[in-house]
Design a protein around this nucleic acid. Structure first.
Ligand SMILES: [Mn+2]
Ligand SMILES: [Mn+2]
Ligand SMILES: [Mn+2]
Ligand SMILES: [Mn+2]
Lengths: 217, 217
DNA sequence: GTTGATATTTAGGTTACCCTAATATATAAA
DNA sequence: TTTATATATTAGGGTAACCTAAATATCAAC
């Protein structure tokens, strides 16, 4: 498996490909790649047994594809923990580093690294590390867009995609922050939040709020 | 730069391409790749400014090529230290892991890793980590084949190429061991050693002994 | 100085991963 | 139900990194 193919599997998992069909366009967007390239790659992933592909509909991961993706995500998150905890990297810097390291990590190395880090439960962005907890978290967490108006919640996880992390940093949002959704404007695609700690008003786009997960306090 | 090209530069350095012309065949052997592929790659490395290539003669690294190779080797050796010291890997297992990790390591990551490891001087195979010390070591060390008969020496460094490491392990040789060359048979390509610690007789091929460096005690 | 062994290059081909332009399909609107 | 729009596929092309087979260059031995 090449780093390229591995990244396709990972993205597929992150876009819900474990349970639903993911349209090519979403993959193309996330990887900044042209749609024909995605079509081509999906056919190749089908041939290798990682994916089930329905033309014009989208792709779903097979069981093997799901397992492979979860192993990759585990490696990615383990490296992020190492980079932050031991090497003193900033939370917003580690994702691109881990994006590379994940592909150069044997199962043996991942296991030893996990033990060395004393079996952390979450990565610095709140993502679960154990492959079982990963599915659970994926099924249980609520998107910020689905939070009830006026009810305070805690940010539990940020989808760690480079552009998103910068967006959230620019809006002063962090894992663990308490926020309350105070307004929703679907026309302007806006979500208004009250930040629990600073009591400041924050406005973010609803489209992007989909990548923020929250839990009830 | 692709991992592939990076490995070519590194091999070139390891084969003495900093000071001498390295023939294509040696590169082809070390990388287990066909000679035409090497020719092709050398032309590509020339175009990128890493290498000076004389057809039918061989390749030398430019200053830029040398610097790049040394940075890569530093990353490689830092990872080996980490894998052995912190993750408990065996010395003979770490080379293939580092061979991958080196290509996924930013300058920032290498610097932080080096500080975290408390600036180690040598990798587990005795290779220098600082890029200055690296050249010095390359120029100063003596090949085991050049050691004087009957004079005890200490093994200071093993060229960490996968097949070689296994050969040396099979012959019970390790960094730090004292050995005395007791015989040399050029016809049979054999070198007879007396192992200082166990007092056992060891026979290794002269060809392979070239990859063992020793220092006087 | 010719010969022969070895090393190297040239020629031609493959697969992986990317692209744009043109065409076809699906779906939402009129 | 036609039409418009978004999405997806097909067609055709490019570069990187590999290969084998055949041609050519180098160099040491005779
Ligand atoms: Mn990440
Ligand atoms: Mn990646
Ligand atoms: Mn090594
Ligand atoms: Mn390598």
């Amino acid at each position: 498996m090449s780093p390229t193919k591995e990244d396709y599997l990972k993205i597929l998992f992150e876009l819900g490909g474990r349970t639903e069909q993911v349209p090519n366009k979403e993959i193309a967007n996330r990887l900044s790649i042209s749609p024909p390239t995605v079509t081509e790659m999906m056919n190749s992933l089908v041939k290798a047994g990682w994916v089930v592909y329905t033309p014009y509909k989208g792709s779903k991961l097979t069981q093997e594809g799901t397992d492979y993706a979860k192993k990759l995500i585990r490696k990615h998150r383990l490296w992020e923990v190492f980079l932050v905890k031991h090497l003193g990297f900033n939370i917003n810097e580690v994702h691109p580093e881990a994006e590379l390291l994940e592909h150069s990590t044997s199962a043996e190395l991942a296991d030893r690294l996990e033990a060395y880090l004393e079996f952390p439960e979450y990565c610095p962005h709140g993502g679960a590390i154990s492959t079982d907890l990963m599915e659970e978290q994926e099924d249980m967490t609520v998107h910020l867009t689905e939070a009830v108006l006026g009810v305070p919640v805690r940010i539990s996880r940020i989808v760690d995609e480079d552009r998103l992390l910068r967006y959230f940093e620019n809006h002063d949002l962090k894992i663990g922050d308490r926020v309350t959704v105070t307004g929703r404007d679907s026309g302007l695609d806006l979500l208004t939040l009250n930040h629990g700690t600073t009591d400041k008003e924050i406005q973010i786009s609803q489209t992007i709020a989909q990548y923020l997960f929250v839990e009830h306090i």
